[in-house]
Design a protein around this nucleic acid. Structure first.
Length: 822
DNA sequence: GGATACCCTTTACC
DNA sequence: ACGGGTAAAGGGTATCC
């Protein structure tokens, strides 16, 4: 039969010793289809150089006769072939070794300890990745497929009758087509009495789909809202949840932090109550993978934890300071969670339940809307990287880069490099870090008429221009090669050398780089969520390449390549600074790939002409661009010193748009009071060009603090608990706050933002941690602490730029009339 | 017991 | 375990006299 097909969820099963891909998707009418397909499984044995034909034949014979008994299963090498391949850009002769089952590849590979074999590769991709590479049936790409329909067939052990799908098809052929795909999405959220997984009862579960809103609960409210469906008890709640999900039949079941909370909680309660929750299309229970973090999987339905995708693909470009549903919804939807003050269910009055239900429902509404917002991105990342959407939604940046490489190796006839083993990973970590970029020490002051240049995708352009990678690295200098700038290693200065023959990694990156440019243009011409998402996918991939090379877990890791890239980064930045200085544009700051300078009486056109000149002198794809012109800019000293502070500055452009970097106002671990004051002061100074009005603002705030007129909310300090309480060597204020929370049985976990304020104490202790109070405590705030440790440090080096010494003022040394402030 | 250097920790920039 | 190094800064801790 013939039909259309969008592959969504990928899994595999074994039947009669072989692997079969089981791909769940939809046809054009929304019918749920399972496609079954297989591919040949194999790996590579790379031969040593200069073997004779006879020697090679001998090896082939030895390999062909390999038989294994793996955990009671008999298996053997099915066949072998000799191929001319590339490995890390070098021509090699390799044996393609076919096996019956993918799981056997590793065992067969470990039998190949023959002296003629140099390396064994390609047995560690995972069956699904291997299948997608082999058969090119890509996730979320529409196809027209042909195949044999399985109808109560005994083939594959009767899989078609066991699966809850409309058709089961054994794939014979496929062809890409144009077809828009709108997935069926169901968002869910649970409310419980305890936060610890499975400890308390599940009170309600909300479900939100298209024209579908429900809250399932066994708790009765005074009024029954229309979206409520009552069940008898928690057992029935779980059963009803399964029933509702099955009836809605979603492609994506979406939660927010649902890998870490909702799904494992549901599973834990189901186990405790001995209720079956066969959510999987094959009737299986949700599975939890326990790595560093929990991952929840449901057979045939893609379980998405939106938090994870947002964290990888978007967090670095977001304004939100935390990735809570509330804050992320505020940023992307302009909506927030409903107000509801948590209480144990035993303390909730009959008339409060309705609010709780609405709160629960709205969380799913927000989750559903966020999914829709990020769907174009999830779609484009998946189509670009070619891994199943389940993996894409949870992977990190290194996995994105690596998967993109693996799915593109064929063009270069490349055999994949292997993942590092435990020993190799450890070794890479101990090799130590490489020297990073250069930061120019700024001159503190308020400057006028500033220009800024920066390199476009600097690290990426360097890799492409200088052909840097693991594969192109030479053992020693050759007569016509690329030399890195000098790199200091201890007291010695060394250089690394790279081949001029184009490497597949830099070439592949060039392709990403060019597509990034193309899709950025496309987005500018035709701005919509899809063009934006496509542009963003390539932006992220392009920007991650260097980080990938330096990441210890990467297949294509190279310490030397990473060190060389950074040596070039330093060289280009320093050279640009020198040239700019020489052209009489005094440089005031520069960090990694950027440079800020004074126009110094010259025109913007002069600066643009100079930029053109700089670009003409740059090799390859290296390119400097104009970041912008600014009316004024502020740089301050480091605390207590006269040197300019790096990574801290504020700029105002001609339209009055202000850009603030690094100052306390952008740091979430300072209290709102000082953040807001510093923000206002910086804005005032950038607008006015002097400090007069700003000083008045400071004075007002100081008065407010002294008169205890500041709201507690503005005095709260928020610091993240980055590890378990017991692991802290230094017991800082936020650790004390976390301990206090624990004592009072307020839930506190690694990763939480701990909130506290500093209060006056009777003790003589000078330790700040002894002043720590939780937000709901009533002790009056410590005026001196907030003046001297929050307000003063946030503003004093700003006023220092105008030669106003706030400390002198406080102590009444210079201006008697101002000493009364403190 | 107070000053100070250093370490630990968090958060930012690019 | 799942991108990197550079930097500012506060507060605790160790060490000195």
């Amino acid at each position: 039969m013939k039909t259309t097909f969008i592959p969504i969820d990928y899994n595999y099963f074994d039947w009669q010793g072989r692997n079969y891909a089981k791909i769940i998707g939809r046809d054009k009418d929304g019918k749920r289809i399972c496609v079954i397909d297989s591919c040949e499984v194999y790996f590579w044995a790379i031969l040593k150089e200069n073997l004779t034909t006879k020697e090679i034949e001998k090896v082939l014979d030895k390999i062909n006769s390999i038989q294994l008994d793996v955990k009671g299963r008999q298996t053997k090498v099915e066949k072998t072939e000799l191929h001319d391949k590339n490995f890390l850009g070098k021509k090699v002769t390799a044996i393609k070794i076919y096996a019956t089952n993918y799981k056997d590849l590793h065992d067969i590979a470990s039998k190949l300890d023959f002296p003629e074999i140099e390396k064994r590769r390609g047995y560690d991709l995972g069956y699904i990745t291997h299948y997608i590479i082999e058969k090119k049936l890509y996730p979320l790409i529409p196809y027209e497929i042909e195949g044999e329909m399985l109808n109560n067939s005994l083939e594959f052990g009767g899989i078609d009758s066991a699966l809850e799908v409309d058709f089961c098809i054994k794939l014979e052929s496929k062809k890409e087509i144009e077809k828009k795909f709108s997935p069926r999405v169901l968002a869910y959220d649970i409310e419980t009495d305890e936060l610890q997984l499975g400890k308390g009862e599940i009170l309600m579960i909300s479900l939100v789909g298209e024209n579908y809103k429900k809250v399932l609960t066994w708790k009765k409210s005074k009024e029954k809202p229309s979206f409520i469906e009552y069940v008898k008890d928690e057992e029935e709640l779980l059963e009803k949840f399964v029933k509702e999900v099955k009836e809605y039949s979603p492609d994506f079941l979406v939660g927010y932090f649902s890998d870490g909370f909702d799904l494992p909680y549901i599973k834990a309660r189901a186990e405790k109550l001995k209720v079956k929750i066969p959510l999987g299309l094959d009737g299986s229970q949700p599975k939890l993978n326990r790595g560093k973090e929990l991952i929840g999987r449901i057979d045939g339905i893609v379980h998405i934890d939106l938090l994870k995708f947002i964290r990888t693909a978007y967090a670095q470009y977001m304004q939100s300071e935390t990735l809570t549903l509330n804050e992320v919804a505020k940023e992307f939807l302009g909506d927030t969670k409903k107000d509801f003050k948590f209480k144990h269910s035993s303390e909730i009055n009959e008339d409060e339940w309705e609010n709780y239900f609405e709160y629960n429902l709205h969380d799913s509404v927000l989750t559903k809307q966020l999914f829709e917002k990020f769907w174009p991105d999830l779609l484009e990342f998946t189509k670009t990287i070619k891994e199943p959407v389940f993996e894409i939604s949870r992977a990190g940046l290194s996995k994105y880069t690596e998967s993109y490489i693996l799915h593109n190796l064929e063009k270069y006839n490349e055999i994949p490099e292997k993942k590092p083993g435990m020993n190799e990973s450890e070794e890479r970590k101990t090799t130590g870090s490489v020297k990073g970029a250069f930061v120019y020490e700024p001159k503190p002051g308020l400057f006028e008429n500033i220009g800024m240049f920066d390199f476009t995708s600097m690290h990426t352009s360097i890799i492409i221009t200088h052909n840097i990678s693991k594969g192109t690295l030479l053992e020693k200098k050759e007569k016509d090669c690329i030399e890195s700038p000098e790199i200091e290693v201890g007291k010695k200065k060394i250089k690394y050398y790279f081949s001029k023959e184009k490497g597949f990694f830099p070439e592949l990156l060039k392709e990403i780089f060019e597509k990034r440019k193309k899709f950025k243009e496309e987005y500018k011409k035709n701005p919509n969520p899809i063009t934006k998402a496509r542009s963003n996918a390539f932006k992220v991939l392009s920007a991650s390449a260097h980080g990938y090379i330096g990441f210890f877990g990467a297949r294509y890791y190279s310490h030397e390549a990473s060190a060389s890239i950074l040596a070039f980064v330093r060289k280009y930045n320093i050279e640009t600074i020198e040239k700019t200085q020489k052209a009489d544009f005094p440089v005031i700051y520069g960090d990694t790939d950027s440079i800020a300078y004074l126009l110094n009486g010259k025109t913007k056109q002069d600066a643009k002409d100079f930029l053109k000149k700089l670009n003409n002198e740059l090799p390859g794809v290296m390119h400097l661009e104009l970041e912008g012109f600014f009316k004024r800019g502020l740089w301050v000293t480091t605390r207590g010193k006269t040197t300019g502070a790096k990574k801290k500055y504020a700029l105002i452009d001609e339209e009055g748009i202000i850009k603030i970097r690094g100052f306390e106002t952008v740091r979430r671990d300072w209290c709102t009071l000082s953040r807001n004051l510093q923000n206002k002061i910086i804005r005032q100074i950038l607008n006015d060009g002097n400090e007069k009005k700003a000083l008045e603002m400071l004075k007002e705030v100081i008065e407010k603090i002294k008169n205890r007129e500041v709201k507690k909310e503005d005095l709260i300090v928020r610091t993240q608990l980055k590890k378990p309480i017991s692991e802290y060597v230094a017991i800082s204020p936020h650790v004390i706050a976390a301990k206090k929370m624990k004592e009072r049985e307020i839930p506190v976990a690694q990763g939480d933002l701990i909130e506290y304020y500093l209060a006056e104490t009777n003790t003589k202790s000078k330790l700040v941690r002894d002043k720590v109070k939780l937000p709901d405590e009533t002790a009056p705030y410590d005026i001196t602490y907030y003046l001297e440790k929050q307000i003063l440090p946030a503003v004093e080096n700003i006023f220092q730029v105008f030669n106003i010494n706030l400390k002198d003022m406080i102590e009444g040394k210079k201006q008697e009339n101002l000493s009364k402030w403190f």
